[in-house]
Amino acid sequence: MENSMKITNLFGKFTRRSYLAMMSGLVVSCLVAPANAADDNPYGLLDTDSIMVGTMSDAKPYAFVTADGTFSGFDVEFFQNIAKRLGFEKDQVTFVGQDFAALIPSVVNGRFDVAVGAIGTTAQRQKVADFTDGYLAGFLSVLSSDESLSTIEALDDKRLGIVQGTLQDDYAQKHFPKAQLVRFPDNNSAVAALNNGMVDAHFLDFEAAKQFGKNYPGLKVMQNFASFDAPAGFVVRKGNSRLLDALNEKIHEAMQDGTWKELHSKWFPGSPMPKQYLPQN
Rank of each mutant, 00 (worst) to 15 (best):
T121E: 10
D146Q: 05
S144K: 00
F131R: 10
T132C: 12
I119R: 04
Q124G: 12
D130Y: 10
G120R: 08
S106N: 05
Q98R: 12
F139M: 10
S144R: 01
G110M: 03
S148M: 00
D146E: 12
F139I: 09
S148P: 05
L103G: 02
R125P: 09
Q98N: 01
F139P: 00
D99H: 08
V116D: 14
G134F: 07
S145L: 02
D113Y: 08
R111M: 11
D133N: 15
T121C: 04
A123P: 08
Q126H: 10
A123S: 12
F112T: 00
I119H: 08
V108T: 03
L143H: 07
V116F: 04
D133R: 12
L149Y: 04
A123D: 14
Q126R: 15
L149T: 03
T121R: 15
L136I: 11
Y135G: 14
G138R: 03
I119E: 06
A101I: 05
G120Q: 11
G138P: 01
S144A: 07
F131D: 13
Y135P: 13
E147Y: 11
L136K: 12
T122D: 06
S141M: 00
F139S: 13
A129D: 05
E147A: 15
V116S: 15
R111K: 11
D99E: 12
V114A: 06
R125D: 08
D113C: 03
L140F: 04
F131T: 07
F139D: 09
S145R: 03
S106W: 00
L136E: 11
T121G: 09
E147H: 10
A115W: 08
Y135E: 15
F100M: 02
V108R: 14
Y135Q: 10
A102T: 01
V108D: 02
V128A: 12
T122A: 08
D133Y: 04
A102H: 02
V107G: 03
L103T: 05
S145V: 02
G134Y: 07
A115N: 03
D130C: 13
T132D: 10
G117S: 02
A123I: 06
V114K: 07
L140T: 03
N109K: 04
F112W: 09
A118W: 07
Q126A: 14
S144T: 12
D146A: 01
I119V: 08
G110E: 02
F112L: 02
F100L: 05
T132Q: 07
G138S: 02
I104H: 06
S141Y: 13
Q124R: 14
N109T: 06
I104V: 06
N109F: 06
A137R: 11
V108W: 01
D130V: 14
L103E: 07
F131N: 13
D133V: 15
I119K: 04
T122K: 10
R125V: 05
I104C: 04
F139R: 09
I104L: 06
F131C: 08
R125K: 15
L149S: 01
S141R: 01
A129F: 02
G120K: 07
I104K: 03
D146I: 05
L136P: 04
P105E: 01
Q98E: 02
D146P: 05
R125S: 12
F112V: 01
V116K: 08
